[in-house]
């Protein structure tokens, strides 16, 4: 694998997460993601995959630890800079999160409209994208009238339409047949080749096998293991002060 300069796009350092006063669902999670690579996140149901992705797409703050994204401390990031970060991300939510009163077309166009792309530059790419995921003839349909798999494809189209710097997909092929799953994987691959870092959470071992060049993160009861040894662990610390226990204090 001859990757480009190994630009660090995400760093987690000893991240822990608990919801409310419950027990930690993520514990001591440390890893580094590099720009332009393709990652799978696996683990049993309830292992914390969605929780980890929530931290990645900035909808949840960790209870402890450090997170850097795009070279910036994401935890102390002021509110008004969050939208700028989120526009660099494409997210496929496990529960799709489509806007129910908008058509498939308008749902896919949403990130572009939010980003202020002129209307005349929206129609073509959105139409093409819907064709690509096989929903060209359903573009006026509301989500409620689409099947689960169709909704999932709309969600995927919405996540990739803006060519994000990083794509985060939570079980993106959970509701589609194996052929469509492979087709969608090819879409992610194509996006990845254009430079997007891709993180896909999935149980589907066949899907992972279809991408031999991908890197695998494995969550086990909230703890991260690194079966392929591809994740640098612990992450490189640029300027963090040495810890007291290291100094023997």
């Amino acid at each position: 694998m001859n990757q480009t300069d190994d630009v660090e796009i995400v760093q987690f350092d000893n991240v822990g997460l608990r919801y409310g006063t419950g027990k930690e669902v993520l514990t001591d999670v440390s890893f580094t993601l590099y720009s332009g690579r393709f990652y799978f996140l696996t683990g049993a149901s309830g292992a914390g995959k969605t929780s980890l992705l929530k931290l990645l797409y900035l909808s949840q703050r960790p209870s402890r630890g450090l997170i850097r994204m795009f070279g910036t401390d994401a935890i102390t990031l002021p509110r008004e800079r969050l939208p700028g970060f989120r526009r660099r991300l494409g997210v496929v939510f496990q529960d799709f999160r489509l806007v129910q009163h908008l058509s498939a077309f308008d749902n896919v166009a949403l990130p572009l409209r939010v980003a202020g792309v002129p209307e005349r530059e929206i129609i073509r790419p959105v139409t093409d994208m819907l064709d690509w995921v096989g929903l060209g003839d359903r573009s006026h349909a509301r989500p409620a009238t689409l099947s689960g798999g169709e909704q999932q494809r709309v969600a995927i189209a919405r996540a990739v339409i803006g060519r994000p710097d990083m794509l985060v997909a939570d079980e993106p092929t959970g509701n589609v047949d194996p052929d469509m799953a492979v087709k969608l994987l090819r879409l992610f691959e194509a996006l990845n080749r254009l430079g997007t870092t891709v993180v896909v959470a999935t149980h589907d071992i066949h899907l992972i096998q279809k991408m031999p060049e991908s890197l695998i993160m494995r969550l086990d009861k909230g703890r991260l293991s690194d079966p392929t040894g591809a994740l640098r662990y612990p992450p490189r610390r640029a300027s963090a002060p040495p810890r007291p226990e290291v100094l023997g204090a």
Partner: peptide
């Protein structure tokens, strides 16, 4: 609320 959260997650600003 749901729509707002979605727009928010897609990078919509408060002012928008």
């Amino acid at each position: 609320r749901v729509t707002i959260e979605i727009v928010h997650m897609l990078g919509g600003t408060d002012t928008q």
